[in-house]
Simulated scan of single mutants.
Amino acid sequence: MSLKGPIILVEDDEDDQYLINKILEELQIPNTLRLHQNGLEALNYLKTTQEKPLLILCDVNMPVMNGLELRKEIEDNPYLKQKAIPFIFLSTSGDIGIVKEAYKGTIQGFYKKESNYSQYKNNVEVIIRYWQSCLHPNK
């Protein structure tokens, strides 16, 4: 993790991609946003990049490889697990079954995508500010 590293967004919905990008601009977050349409794209990027991402914001339901599958792949890969990149789910679903399934692995949060823009923005800000000030073994 690097404070100046990119924020990885794993999200297939164009509206949510737009909203996250807009929120980051409004919050004046200088980190580059690296967008991936599904878990497989993100996994391939994480395996090959020399960048040290600040965090991963990941949707749950996506084609090809969903967020739960991506998180498991990261946990099962010693190289990626050692990077200890904070992994946070952002989902339209607040279904308790999905939340419980997500927390069977190592994640650092699960947030529901709010329909209220102000609350959505607040949640994203809380997530980013927390990780910007948190101690981390790979800083």
Rank of each mutant, 00 (worst) to 15 (best):
M1P: 15
S2N: 15
L3C: 07
P6W: 09
P6S: 01
I7R: 08
I7V: 15
I8V: 13
I8W: 05
L9N: 00
E11N: 06
D15W: 09
Y18K: 04
L19P: 02
L19Y: 08
N21V: 08
K22N: 12
Q28V: 13
Q28Y: 12
N31H: 11
T32F: 12
N38S: 03
Y45W: 12
L46I: 02
L46S: 01
K52I: 08
P53F: 03
I56S: 06
L57N: 07
D59W: 03
P63T: 10
N66W: 09
N66S: 10
N66M: 05
L68D: 00
I74D: 00
P78C: 02
L80P: 03
K81N: 14
K81T: 11
Q82L: 11
Q82Y: 03
K83H: 10
I85S: 05
P86S: 06
I88N: 01
I88L: 03
F89A: 01
V99T: 08
K100P: 00
A102I: 02
K104F: 01
K104L: 09
Q108A: 02
G109S: 02
Y111I: 07
E114S: 15
S115L: 15
S118V: 13
Q119L: 08
N122H: 14
V124E: 11
V124I: 15
I127M: 04
S133I: 10
N138Y: 07
